[in-house]
């Protein structure tokens, strides 16, 4: 049973990541593979403030979201100059740079060894050290993020985003500063990813740069492409499917390494198949 709790917690964290990436890609049409970097910024900030600053977990997590937002502002402003496929390229570049910083800035990030001994969160005397309470925390945050994402879409801001996605030039004619809108949603999406990162750090209690690579960004992309772009429930659906694939591959008894690679083959094939069969995803509203 604790195994299921573990699974559900990981699922919740991945789902938040998927929703956050979907907020960007689904509504601007821009694929950002830099997402793992913001996931990492959230994780590292939370972990380091917790351990070295003695700060409360939730405050640390907020700091992580804030820092991710600032970095997203910087990187997003640069990337907003790039069109579609160059955007992806740029995002890969930034991901590598941030990952390099995680690996080389030894004195702060612990380098390749990462940060260990992260404690579970506690708030007003309630401790989330046990896995079950932590799962509840993850689910609560997932619901929050879900509502936030849905709310954003329903606002005028969200409608402008959709318009940008459909025809950026047309709406620019009306005087909308499309770059600012894209930048803002990018910051929001990256902030959500940082939230997931903080949760992850608190959960696994150990983080190192190897969790925040392009492989992880591709996983998030697969989640939203399968589930459906521009649909918040689609992001959750896609995550559920991919997590099931992970568990299934663990259970069929292949040696762990082969199973992991087989999963990658499946993700890759899924991406290709989805491009052929349903580019908008299972319940998505937007085709790339």
């Amino acid at each position: 049973m604790s195994y299921l709790i573990n699974l559900a917690s990981i699922f919740a964290i991945y789902a938040i990541l998927a929703i956050s990436m979907n907020s960007i890609t689904g509504y601007t049409g821009l694929v950002t593979l830099a997402h793992a970097a913001f996931y990492g910024i959230g994780a590292y900030t939370t972990a380091l403030l917790l351990i070295h600053g003695g700060v409360n977990f939730f405050v640390a997590m907020l700091a992580g979201i804030f820092l991710a937002g600032v970095v997203a502002l910087l990187i997003g402003s640069v990337m907003s100059k790039f069109r579609g496929d160059y955007y992806i390229l740029g995002s890969i570049g930034f991901l590598y740079i941030i990952n390099s910083i995680m690996k080389n800035w030894d004195s702060v990030t612990g380098g390749p060894l990462g940060v260990a001994g992260i404690t579970r969160p506690a708030l007003f005397g309630v401790s989330f050290a046990e896995n079950l309470p932590f799962l509840l925390l993850c689910l609560t945050l997932l619901i929050l993020v879900y509502w936030l994402a849905k709310w954003i879409v329903s606002t005028p801001f969200g409608r402008v985003l959709k318009a940008i996605r459909e025809d950026e030039e047309a709406i620019a004619v009306f005087g909308y500063r499309t770059k600012h809108f894209k930048l803002l949603i990018f910051m929001i999406g990256c902030g959500m990813a940082a939230l997931a990162g903080g949760l992850f750090a608190g959960y696994i209690r150990y983080i190192d740069p190897s969790t925040f690579t392009i492989v992880d960004s591709v996983f998030m992309l697969a989640c939203i492409i399968v589930g459906g772009l521009a649909n918040v429930r689609g992001a959750i659906l896609g995550t559920a499917i991919l997590v099931m694939i992970i568990e299934f591959s663990r259970l069929i008894g292949l040696p762990a390494d082969v199973a992991a690679q087989l999963r990658e083959v499946i993700y890759g094939v899924l991406l290709i198949v989805m491009m052929f069969w349903r580019p908008q995803g299972l319940i998505g509203e937007y085709k790339l």
């Binding site: 591709v218 083959v265 991406l271």
Partner: peptide
């Protein structure tokens, strides 16, 4: 995206 899929697989 198709290329990313092919590369990963």
């Amino acid at each position: 995206v198709g290329a990313i899929g092919a590369m990963t697989a």
